[in-house]
Design a protein around this nucleic acid. Structure first.
Lengths: 213, 213
DNA sequence: GTCTATAAATCGATAGAC
DNA sequence: GTCTATCGATTTATAGAC
């Protein structure tokens, strides 16, 4: 059994607080606008102290991404293993939208090459990304074989689309418009995601059940 | 009749060149990473000269957005006025994806508040955005009445979704993967956009028609 | 209007005392 | 490990000569 000293627990807790702040600021402002001074002020420590825990701004972003992937993994483990694959995918999609509406989905720019290469060298991040992608990939293939997802789409395309919906700007636009409840926003975007703008539900089979919530 | 001096024509041409450069750099790197020095170097003039034409970086971005909205308007005017509304919408969606794959779709961060307030004070931009939105809005309502778009979706939701697909990161991800031609990428994303990941085409169940095409 | 040169401000990262 | 203070680099924007 690993012994964990009290000091180490405190250190852990502080780093958790740092990563939680980074996560929130990334969701609120995005990577390029977020400053390290801001993070330090939000946590309530000096910037130099921050750099004792994380050696660069890019590492802070990586830690926040690892955190959200961990949360996704934890959520996926709560799903009943015997449910139809398409329901697992819908549950994950709904969860990512809830996280985003709660202001807790960190968003990184798609084009910052320095940040991207840093992430591509971040093994904890890559490992978890692979795990999540593999699990989703299995569900995608199974759902296609069951006829619940369009089998003409490469699974890669479905995977990328689900990731993209996790940070879809439409969510934020609809939220600030203030005309719909969070629940309605999510149901509408679930509809456009799985049934498209044309929106014919394949009425015969899954008239889709809302699967609780 | 407005007289246009030769000097004015040259000035116009230079400003066009500037905005074209900004447009390309915004598509390639995004607003935050793009620097004014880069723009000046790309155009081939000194930075101070650039500021004689546009008084800030934000104005440069606004001019690029006006340019792409003008291109969209020009494209929409080439569409046959008597075609079904859903076909007009699909044509516009396909066009935006082509522009993005060509590396000519400027992308602004969704969260840079300084930039956003600058755009909200940019009348030429707002005017053109309204014009494009109004035309799309008409088509959306018509397509919903014709039963070609899900009438349960507020037209606002459809409009936002179409705008979001114009800068969907999935396009770029699939392009760099290099596994599909540009045409196939666009057809797949058109499918996920209008028919969803489930992908049942409406043809089977509605008694009607596909309305030509 | 175009240039060179520089001001003014911001931000990531570090030094060094405690 | 935490702090204050500061460096060094980058970037937006402008001065002033031509």
């Amino acid at each position: 059994m690993a012994k964990v000293s009290f000091k180490e627990q405190v250190l852990r807790a502080r780093e958790d607080a740092i990563v939680a702040s980074v996560n929130r600021l990334l969701a609120e402002k995005g990577y390029d606008i977020m400053t390290v001074d801001e993070v330090a002020a939000d946590v309530g420590i000096a910037k130099a102290s921050l750099y004792k825990h994380f050696s660069s701004k890019e590492e802070l972003a990586g830690a926040a991404m690892v955190r959200v992937l961990q949360r996704a993994q934890a959520f996926m483990e709560t799903l009943p293993a015997d449910a139809p694959a398409v329901d697992q995918l819908k549950a994950v999609a709904r969860w990512t939208m809830q996280v985003q509406l709660a202001g807790e989905m960190p968003s990184l720019p798609a084009q910052n090459s320095a940040l991207r290469s840093s992430l591509m060298a971040n093994k904890p991040y890559l490992d978890r990304l692979m795990d999540v992608s593999d699990q989703l990939g299995e569900w995608i293939v199974a759902a296609q074989q069951a006829g619940d997802l369009n089998p003409a789409l490469p699974s890669e395309v479905v995977l990328y689309t689900l990731f993209a919906r996790a940070c879809d700007p439409v969510l934020g636009l609809l939220k600030v418009s203030g005309q719909h409840s969070d629940e309605r926003i999510i149901e509408m975007l679930m509809s456009t995601c799985f049934d498209g703008l044309a929106g014919r539900t394949p009425a015969a089979q899954t008239s889709s059940t809302k699967s609780g919530s």
